[in-house]
Design a protein around this nucleic acid. Structure first.
Length: 379
DNA sequence: TCTCATT
């Protein structure tokens, strides 16, 4: 164990956090399901005194020995609570730890306890910063281009929305956006801020909107979502045919959302099924389930709203563990794969996700007869 | 090198 070696000069085992680490139980089973809790660094953040966004569940630990691995971080931190993920930052050349790493806990309480305990043991632990916004602009562009102007599948017997999805950056106009004019809705440029359709006012965001219903909850619900923590959720009414599936993705700066909201609070519920069936010949598919579960980091950057989208019971929501009809914290969903794999040739639901989750959202690509797109989480 | 670093 590298820790012992690194601290070979320390004679007091009780004071040596690295020595303590070694006595901890083995890491959880690699296939252990994600926690029912959906707490994550992505949707749990707050500002510190200097205005930086700090995660509530993700720890930044520095001062690590060069030999530190992800497993070591698990061992180090598992006494303090359920761990979602760990990452020892390695030098790609030497494969040695660069001296710091991250541990994402299941709950803010566990994370706080870990910070306090680790500090008490001399480990330099603190809540990690939430990563920057701007790095994902191009990725947002990809998402926008794939969703803007597309239709979502509607339930049988339900008329399709008259308007296709509007997916766009939704910043307040302060930040410059280049080539905005290339994004159009129904052949016309996006409405400007303040005009109809600009219900979302998050700063560095993009938005998808789909006029399925016109509801006052549209704006109200949206604004309930913290700016820096765009809350993903799966919403549905027990008596409704419709379900709302905003998909929280990795890229801040791009919000995909619908103006159509169910006239009830967005309770998170366990969908009985997870396949949004394709409407047309050229479905654009993605796999939200792939993006769920352990994909809880850095996902507060983009949301996909598919309000009014019909979800069949064809595929179970594996790995999500959301109790049915039970309001629970939002589940973060990563669509890193949107950028990682944008190949039109990829056949949908192939999955590289080890959790075996398979879920599809089919988006009508009637505007563009594109082949099926596969959105897969990139590891 | 007196020990940084934020995926």
């Amino acid at each position: 164990m590298q820790f012992t070696k690194w601290h070979s000069g320390c004679g007091n085992a009780c004071e040596d956090p690295w020595r303590v680490v070694q006595s901890y139980a083995p890491a959880p089973h690699p296939m252990a399901p994600p926690s029912p809790s959906t707490n994550s660094s992505s949707n749990n953040s707050s500002s510190n005194s200097s205005g930086e966004q700090l995660s509530k569940t993700n720890l930044y630990i520095r001062g690590l020995p060069p030999g530190t691995t992800d497993q070591d971080l698990i061992k180090l931190c598992q006494p303090y609570g359920k761990i979602v993920s760990t990452k020892a930052i390695l030098d790609k050349n030497t494969n040695q730890c660069k001296g710091y790493g991250f541990v994402d806990f299941d709950s803010p309480a566990a994370a706080q306890k870990a910070v306090a305990s680790l500090k008490a043991n001399g480990v330099q632990a603190q809540m990690a910063k939430v990563r920057s916004v701007m790095e994902s602009t191009e990725k947002c562009e990809v998402v926008i281009q794939h969703f803007n102007g597309k239709y979502l599948k509607t339930p049988p017997g339900i008329p399709a929305p008259s308007e296709p999805l509007l997916c766009k950056f939704a910043d307040g106009g302060q930040k410059k956006r280049q080539n905005q004019s290339k994004y159009t809705q129904n052949g016309r440029p996006w409405p400007r801020e303040g005009e109809a359709g600009m219900a979302l006012t998050y700063d560095p965001t993009a938005a998808i909107q789909n006029g399925f219903y016109s509801s006052p909850y549209s704006i109200a619900t949206n604004r309930m979502i913290p700016q820096t923590s765009i809350t993903p959720f799966i919403a549905a009414s027990p008596v409704s045919t419709y379900q709302t599936v905003p998909i929280d993705a990795t890229y801040r700066g791009c919000l995909v959302q619908s103006t159509s909201w169910m006239p009830h609070p967005p309770y998170v519920m366990q969908p009985t099924g997870a396949v949004i069936t394709p409407t047309m010949d050229h479905p654009m598919s993605m796999q939200p389930a792939n993006m769920m579960g352990p994909l809880t980091q850095q996902m507060n950057h983009l949301s996909l709203g598919t309000t009014g989208t019909y979800m069949t019971a064809a595929a179970p929501m594996q790995g999500t563990y959301i109790p049915q009809y039970t309001p629970v914290p939002p589940t973060a969903v990563s669509i890193e794969g949107v950028v990682a794999d944008t190949s039109p040739q990829t056949v949908a639901p192939s999955s590289q996700d080890t959790s075996g989750q398979q879920q599809q959202i089919a988006v009508d690509t009637s505007n563009e007869h594109a082949p099926a797109y596969s959105y897969q989480q990139s590891k």
